[in-house]
Design a protein around this nucleic acid. Structure first.
Lengths: 240, 240
DNA sequence: AAAGTTCGTTCCGTGCACCGGAACACCTCG
DNA sequence: CGAGGTGTTCCGGTGCACGGAACGAACTTT
């Protein structure tokens, strides 16, 4: 039964939105009556809510989701540094962690006139298509990179790296410089620079980045700010 | 069964954390075996995760919670204005909505050396004890204020307003000035100024605030910035 | 206007998944 | 060592989750 309830909730991933009963049932692969029954329970429990004739995710999910430790704890420590980075660059700042082969975004800060990006708090993008992902990947154990490089690489744009050799080279450059770059690999017209965040010896626990319209991309200006934020945060995390 | 699963998840509200099986079962009021079974399912589905011998809320909740429309949509619109407000004040900025008799915080922005506050993204505090809450309450229909004033008022500190007359006066002052204040009513040593955010005619859809250590509270300096942010955001929301 | 289609909701028989006590193995502490 | 606590497994009983059928309402098509 739990599986069925979650299959209903999963209809809303990754795009959110709202659905009517029949569509929700179809997308969840459940008989209409079963879906109707479960939806009623989910609404009662606050995990879904009614919006006219439609259903959308409910406030209780938001409240529970906000308590998830890996989001809450890391975000609290990172926020001042992300704010610094946003202020010194005025560009969209991201903060994310690795989950399997994806980046999961824990925070995203932008101002007015922010460029449209596919990233979203709570959303996922492939490690290999994003600067944050590459920063995480470059400093993770070699087994992960090997495993990812052994299969086909996911693509979000025509510029996404599809050649394993090219990706390996990029990762090695990141290992040397401590910075990872993204060139229209996740979103057309967008460049990005990222640095890993460490909590101690070993793999990075997170990474942060700045995303910029390509024609305004100035690594020389951005790199020090990105490094400073990542180092500052790493130091804070090490001190517990 | 869903009820039981949610009773397990609700153990984590409002404080988060992690628990062992037996404690989780006791707090959820379930027999140990039932809890064990459900926890196994919740872990499999990503709603809980194991942390050694302990269980904590899982990443799937964070991902689903991030898609909740009333959080995601409002926060996206509000963020640039909240950033402006943070930059012009350098103090902790809050953004919240009303749910029944509580404020639910949708965003909280702070820098280094932020003052400790009881607020938290996804957390709740009584309307009557917070500036945001009073801003929301003052511009909601009179039935709500009447209903709240008819019962005992919740208190978070010794300074929280317990006298219905005093609260009614404060609400009327907010209706006149468009600003609501908080004087150690939610947290000792903390003052706060808030303004409502409207999306059209009618009740406010949200409110935003700045929280300051009491000895640094300068309403004359803060009020214009708070007003500007709230007005700017209201305008944006009205334009869709 | 009538017929057909789709929707959300209710009804209800039944099969099996949920339930949870008992048992077990392991660990910790006095 | 024994007592108490923990997490895990086992398994029989039964309550209820399940979902097809039916229904009424709304919408669309002829």
């Amino acid at each position: 039964m739990l599986d069925k309830a979650v299959s209903i909730l999963d209809v809303y991933r990754p795009d959110g939105g709202s659905f009517r009963l029949t569509e929700l049932a179809a997308r969840a692969g459940l008989p209409k009556t079963t879906a109707f029954r479960l939806i009623g329970d989910l609404v009662r429990l606050g995990l879904l809510e009614r919006d006219g004739e439609r259903y959308r995710l409910g406030g209780t999910l938001f409240e529970l989701g906000s308590l998830v430790p890996r989001r809450h704890d890391l975000r609290e420590s990172a926020l001042p540094f992300l704010q610094d980075l946003f202020e010194s660059t005025r560009q969209t700042v991201h903060f994310g962690i690795r989950d399997d082969r994806d980046v999961v975004y824990l925070e995203r800060i932008h101002g007015h006139d922010a460029v449209p990006l596919p990233s979203r708090i709570g959303g996922r993008l492939p490690l290999t298509c994003t600067a944050i992902g590459k920063a995480l990947l470059a400093f993770s154990g070699p087994e992960l990179a090997d495993a990812i490089l052994a299969g086909p690489l996911p693509r979000l744009t025509a510029y996404s790296i599809a050649d394993p050799l090219r990706l390996r080279t990029a990762l090695e450059q990141t290992q040397v410089s401590g910075l990872a770059y993204e060139e229209q690999e996740a979103a057309l017209g967008i460049s990005c620079i990222a640095a890993p965040v460490f909590a101690g010896a070993g793999e990075p626990v997170a990474a942060l980045s700045v995303a910029v319209p390509r024609e305004h991309f100035r690594p020389a200006h951005l790199a020090p700010a990105v490094r400073t934020a990542a180092l500052g945060l790493s130091r804070t995390l090490r001190q517990g």
